[in-house]
Design a protein around this nucleic acid. Structure first.
Lengths: 321, 321
DNA sequence: TTGAAAGCGCTACCAA
DNA sequence: TTGGTAGCGCTTTCAA
């Protein structure tokens, strides 16, 4: 220990933390810092937070599905902003744990705040986290969870925008791509529901179209396309849209004449295909604002609005619809 | 504490850890478990690892650039495999820290193993981590770092494959796209170098082409394309390749007739454009194997080969070259 | 079979 | 200005 290199453990602590309530003489201060550098001393976060009774760790579960550039961008910004506010941000990579069991695993680390995307957290889980000292528990998902601050992601609205748009373009028989890859339901279901909502009462129909993210799967779907009698498709996102659009074109289906195609996420790549892909642009919350919200809740757990609508979705009309 | 609900703290510990060296009577055991559940008791990881003198945390820095599906897939697999081996996997999101400073921040958490992709770690950093108790420090990058186990990613080989291929197709004036987005140099530089190596001594030329990931940037580059007099381009990866290819086509440049285009990463989307995109397929290490390697090094820090070549790159020839 | 107690590294209080 | 020390929650050894 650095103590061996001069003074007492308390003094070391004072110096390394710049404790303002205590004055340490320059020579001592220097001796301590030198010893610390020499020994390669690094404070022990566990001991510190044990003593302090709390940590400055913000925990979020690591996404367990390949996630688009939109969302990774958001995560990066969020992490950056939080580290500016002197938090330690950590993505917990424990896959295989379900809901409240995962919450227990997270709670072991005694994070001061937890941000859970995707609706995999129940009221039980929130309770466990709060009991274990989390001052802020935020969910980023389609619906609010009791006890947590909810950031409502209106994925229903994504589908709704697409549905309204297709309806306005005169389409009446709308297919909705549902990815077969597991783990995406929490996004695809609400989007489907939004399309349904947009079309309900108009006489237009909605058809679910399971699709795996592979060329063969798209080819199979395209092969039976005409038998489905659809005049439009909302393809879950831009990548699935591009996959399907290509397969349809290879099958001789005219786009948008015979079938309109709409994606979502507004990827740059969607502008490169021909016809250019119509898409639903999603406005994610700014990572910085969200970081500030977290900080506010941590410092003042009451008195912060418990629910906020954090993005809008708007159609970007291009040539494919 | 659960202690208030019956017995002594030691007994609680015995029960909750199934300590085999000690026999606890069924009634007591049951009482403890019940109390734990009722109180929502969650063990305190910090206290535990403080006492134990080590943790089972595997730390990796969170990527700070939007990362492709290939790599996220790899991360997911790795995390999954490690959590199966009873490790706690954590991605540390401290952006803004440089090299050895970052290492100190990581060391505060006293991880038992650290995996650092992308070559941002020096021998100093490795030393700090080892001193702080990390039994395994692995780097995943282009070159080995003193003291760490190196998993060599042959990004040079990616460029090399592309260069050899283009040469074999009779191309002599090769452009290489260099992304203008910061943080990608650690990939783009080695890839460029690989192309250079492939072409050196053949009389073929290499031209660096800065390109931002935006349509306008690509359009500007395409507008002066003919003045560059290139007959081939290796576009860093498939996304940049698709971006540039579209801009070239809009400019009337025939692909592959006038200019051959090669990407990298073998994304599904590259197969959807016309002409289909030639690409360099990259074989990342399997997350499972890598997890087992980490485990082996943790348990037996010596006696494990210190360096391994973990992927190969091979050209996938399609229609764009 | 169970309890008492030491001690992991750190910080904050109080005494010197 | 500095040092001594208690105690955060946990595990483990030793004693009862």
């Amino acid at each position: 220990m650095a103590r061996l290199a001069g003074v007492s453990r308390a003094t070391v602590s004072y110096v390394l933390n710049n404790t303002s309530a205590v004055r340490i003489s320059e020579p001592t201060r220097r001796r301590v810092q030198e010893a610390a550098r020499e020994l390669g001393y690094v404070p022990h976060a566990a001991a510190r937070s044990l003593r302090a009774g709390h940590s400055r760790m913000v925990l979020m579960p690591a996404p367990n599905v390949p996630v688009g550039p939109l969302y990774s961008q958001f995560i990066n910004e969020f992490q950056w902003a939080l580290s500016r506010l002197d938090y330690t941000v950590v993505q917990y990579g424990g896959i295989g744990l379900q809901g409240d069991e995962a919450a227990r695993a997270w709670a072991e680390l005694r994070p001061v705040a937890v941000l859970v995307p995707g609706g995999g957290l129940g009221p039980q889980g929130v309770h466990v986290l709060k009991r274990s000292g989390a001052r802020a528990v935020l969910t980023l998902g389609p619906e609010r969870v009791d006890g947590a601050h909810a950031l409502l992601l209106d994925h229903d609205g994504v589908g709704h925008s697409a549905g309204v748009h297709l309806l306005a373009r005169g389409r009446r028989r709308v297919g909705v791509v549902m990815p077969e890859e597991p783990g995406l339901e929490f996004l695809s279901r609400p989007r489907l529901k939004g399309v349904r909502r947009a079309l309900s009462g108009t006489g237009a129909t909605v058809t679910e179209l399971p699709l795996a993210y592979e060329e063969e799967s798209a080819a199979r779907l395209a092969a039976r396309w005409r038998s489905l009698g659809l005049d439009a498709v909302f393809a879950y996102n831009d990548e699935y849209a591009m996959l399907l659009m290509r397969a349809l074109q290879d099958e001789g289906v005219d786009i948008p004449g015979e079938t309109a195609v709409v994606g979502a996420d507004d990827l740059i790549l969607g502008r490169l295909v021909r016809p250019r892909l119509s898409t639903v642009h999603i406005e994610l919350p700014s990572g910085c604002e969200l970081a500030e919200l977290v900080d506010r809740v941590v410092r003042e757990p009451v008195g912060v609005p418990e629910v906020s609508q954090v993005f809008g979705a708007r159609i970007v009309h291009r040539a494919s619809s």
